[in-house]
Design a binder for these strands. Structure first.
Lengths: 214, 214
DNA sequence: GTTCGGCTCCCCCGGGAGGGGGAGCCGAGT
DNA sequence: ACTCGGCTCCCCCTCCCGGGGGAGCCGAAC
């Protein structure tokens, strides 16, 4: 028989870790090789290179699970599989975990056998239950929302005005909505145009859409 | 011990079905309860209500696996879990399967143990490896691309002009690009506005973005 | 054969948009 | 104290946009 899968547990709650450790340790083909209390620990453990699957909590002090996952996938070519574990299946968490490069998402209320099955499954294969392709998809849609330099250095007001313009409002409507003069709105939009390097309102709205501002 | 999971196999290739049937039949906790050769069979079998997991091929005559999945999820409240099985992990297939409401995606080259694990996992739980939340996400992004009545009854030319407008081009630029008069472009855009029920070019571009035309 | 819808172009006209100025206020940083 | 950038408002001017007409051409449908 092959050597057991090496599992690392990352959770800020000692109790949770012990529980998981007990469950996993009872399995002959699984072994808890490391434990950590936050994202920094996770990164260090992942760097050690002797881990197959990392069970990662989301809410943790210092560096949370999502960011830790991000760093690990960004930094390590040979990284452990990462299963993000949390209490609630908040859509946002799932999405963020996906984008960060996690291999799976588990709920703490998951039944024991399912947890074990998921760990074994994710360790062995990447072709089951929405893996690689989905992650590429998520990464692609995520990339669209990053690295749009222009949008970043808009002032608060300018972003606000642009957002309303991107809802189809006219200058006068925007002015009324924001309790401003129509001329002021025009001024803001003008700086938006120059900052974004576009010609008119339509192109600005397009830029807003493409950069994920809308 | 509980009664075995009831599996249905849908594939147009007799050989594949037999292979899967043999593998699955050998497991004490699994049982092949039905087989079909296309999407129509799949729908009938799903309607019978005595199936836990449906292994569904994508490429099939008459009605393919994606459409069958769509119909089943649309029609049946109490539906079997559906695992879409195919030879290549074409991104498009994965995405379509997801949108259609499939619970998972498998490759035919998947190892036997993984196939069995996936079947057992998907039958029991919905909280593992990107399930419900992801499907809602996919459904949401999909919905944005459908059922935008306005966009549908634009004429060919009007759609063309709108698309260029949505790239930030002015009327004159669009005219030059399409070898038209500037007035013609205006006319087309005007009908676009009335058909989409919008006021100006900006709102039209927004509609184009929201409806997935861009 | 007539009608209807899509496609093409034209004119006029009003209004909003965008550019170019100028100006005052305020808070933060030098 | 001064400067600089963000926010606010104003005027003028030009240009494109959008609305409201009208008109001719064509192919399909009735």
């Amino acid at each position: 028989m092959t050597e057991p899968l090496r599992i690392a547990l990352i959770d800020d709650e000692e109790l949770i870790r012990s529980g998981f450790a007990a469950i996993i340790g009872a399995e002959p083909d699984l072994e808890v090789c490391a434990q950590g209390a936050d994202g920094v620990d996770a990164l260090n453990i992942a760097r050690s290179g002797r881990v197959d699957v990392l069970l990662m909590d989301v809410r943790m002090p210092r560096v949370d699970g999502i960011e830790a996952t991000e760093r690990i996938t960004a930094e390590l070519a040979e990284r452990p599989k990462i299963l993000v574990v949390t209490t609630f299946d908040n859509d946002d968490y799932v999405w963020q975990a996906l984008r960060a490069g996690a291999d799976g998402f588990l709920l703490k209320r998951t039944k024991i056998e399912d947890l074990l099955a998921a760990v074994r499954l994710v360790a062995r294969t990447d072709a089951v239950l929405f893996p690689e392709s989905i992650r590429r998809l998520a990464a692609a849609t995520a990339k669209r929302s990053e690295a749009h330099p222009g949008i970043a250095d808009l002032s608060e007001r300018e972003r606000e005005v642009l957002q309303l313009a991107a809802k189809g409002m006219s200058n006068t409507e925007i002015a009324e909505r924001l309790y401003l003069g129509r001329e002021t709105v025009k001024t803001h939009l003008s700086s938006v145009y120059t900052k974004l390097g576009v010609r008119d309102r339509t192109q600005a709205v397009i830029a807003a859409y493409d950069s994920g501002l809308v």
